[in-house]
Design a protein around this nucleic acid. Structure first.
Lengths: 329, 329
DNA sequence: TTGTAGGCGTTATCAG
DNA sequence: CTGATAACGCCTACAA
């Protein structure tokens, strides 16, 4: 690997031009004749010369790299929600000519510093931070206090015009209402700790008192969905509709139900949340709330690019959420 | 953002020490007293001083960044196979203190140059390349010719000790055999163009002639799985077992079958490939070939790290594949 | 243990 | 349009 790359000086000498000319030809900046530019580009290919990025980033103070920070549980389960956001982020980043560096942040590791560092040390031009953990808060603080452009992806809350948000409360309300409309009376909610808004919206939509809704608060994986079902089957066999805080939970729940010959949706109507791509191909296909993750990701990059070009964002962006009715409820 | 960060000189001056001392304190290299190191670290936190990465990478010629190149179809469908590999890559990269930069490469874009550039311009210390496209071939050539450490993830083939491989042919053979053992007689194969080995293994395992197996060659998405089923239902309603080239196809196929009241596995035994996390939670749970993607990703990084530390790899690494029998076949 | 000083490869500025 | 040259911020011999 210590193939000692040729540098601009040597390369320029080789062609009998100045380093400045080489730089201009290859960077596309500054006045230069088409002819020499073409010549130099051709020669660069021939000799395999490329400007050393580090030198160039150093000089220009531009990293051309965006950071994507997302919460990651320490499990082998992929987080499909994040995956789909990342799909959009990626696509938009490429379109904007930016590189993407990804930072899964796990609360259990307990240490934001590596991430904070990357924000502070100049390696990132901007950051996209998916909210949802204590750490994301710290990151946002770091980005904020250092004036680094950043976008937060998260459910609606007080902070910041930089946010790209979705309205979990409304989504859950939609589900609650729907359950009410189809005449379900004994609702449950299966989810994690962090979804207060979903819980509230759900209860509102159901038009019931909070005490009349069963809350099973646990994790967010297939596995939790399954165990939630098993628990509920014993404790509350009368439950006739369930909102799961995400599609993965819903799938775990349904899978467990089917294996006990509980019919979905006849016996229990089950709704998910997120509308991951898989949702429509599950069997039964998932009734769920679409958060339009890919769009969420795309929009975040677009907004970040605006920030980078000096624009000021006047208000957070809200991406709509929709209830998608399929087979499971 | 043009908060003009403090630089080492100013910072050193502020503390009344030399830049060298600061550098030593913060980089952890070179002799320095514990006392001054602690002092400087504390002050660095206080003033928010961090070494400019670009300057330091420039100086040391170390990027500390790994690149992950993977084929990406231009669809909104996430590629779960890749996602799970990435999970392992990520985990191992973090463990090794490396940053990860990801490069989805789409054949349709027709342009490897941006990726080649990142390999050639020094921004990457090493690369992990998932084989499977024309472009990955070009990338490998680029990495090879420039002596950049790289690992290829791919199914078994001639090239290179750098590979982390899995044996698609064997996996498919396992499925073929299994179908034969359970007495299925009229097999089909649903998949993409690139899976010659799978096809071959499947036919071998079935112990049939190639002409007696129906091949439906198309894409690799949920959607393709569905249309494959619809096509086969009309053209070959006698088919009683199907190997799909990946789990996503299998899910699309099964979903379509169930919606036509075709029973899985009673009427048609369906096997997938990859054993994505979801496979066990689908309903029916997927019988499939596990490629151990997470491990694949982890191993790749580990091998790359060996390469980076100067070791020479003497032979490619083979990750086992196993037939996982669940409900769909 | 600490300080001094040179140079890494580019790009931008300023002449020509 | 092109060439010479001075930074950019850090690390690392080498000297003290």
């Amino acid at each position: 690997m210590d193939n000692k790359r040729i540098n601009i000086k040597e390369f320029a000498q080789l062609l009998g031009v100045s380093t400045a000319t080489v730089s201009r030809a290859l960077s596309g900046k500054g006045r230069i004749s088409e002819k020499t530019r073409a010549m130099i580009k051709a020669k660069a290919d021939e000799f395999g010369y490329r400007a050393n990025v580090h030198a160039s980033k150093f000089r220009t103070r531009q990293s051309n790299t965006l950071g994507f920070f997302y919460p990651s549980i320490d499990s082998e389960d992929p987080d499909y929600f994040i995956t789909e956001i990342m799909l959009g982020v990626n696509e938009a980043a490429i379109k904007s000519g930016k590189n993407l560096q990804i930072f899964p942040i796990s609360d259990s590791s307990g240490n934001v510093d590596p991430f904070k560092d990357s924000i502070l040390n100049g390696s990132l031009e901007g950051a996209i931070i998916v909210a949802g953990t204590k750490m994301s808060g710290e990151l946002i603080d770091a980005a904020e206090s250092w004036g680094i452009p950043y976008i937060v992806i998260g459910s609606i809350r007080g902070g910041g015009n930089n946010a790209v948000t979705f309205d979990n409360e409304r989504g859950a309300r939609l589900v609650g209402k729907y359950f009410r409309n189809i005449g379900r009376k004994r609702p449950a909610y299966v989810g994690g700790f962090l979804d207060k808004r979903k819980k509230r919206g759900y209860v509102e939509g159901l038009g019931m008192r909070e005490e009349d809704v069963l809350f099973d608060i646990g994790g967010c994986s297939f596995h939790h969905g399954r165990t939630a079902f098993e628990r509920l089957l014993i404790e509350r066999p009368d439950i006739d509709c369930v909102l799961c805080a995400n599609d993965v939970l819903a799938i775990g729940y349904i899978k467990a139900a089917l294996s006990k010959s509980v019919r979905i949706p006849e016996d229990i109507a089950v709704a998910g949340f997120d509308d991951i791509k898989l949702a429509r191909f599950y069997s039964p296909a998932l009734t769920t709330v679409s958060l339009h993750e890919v769009e969420l990701g795309r929009k975040s990059v677009e907004r970040l690019m605006k920030l980078l070009s000096g624009e000021t964002l006047m208000e957070p962006e809200l991406v709509n959420c929709d209830l998608i009715i399929r087979e499971s409820a």
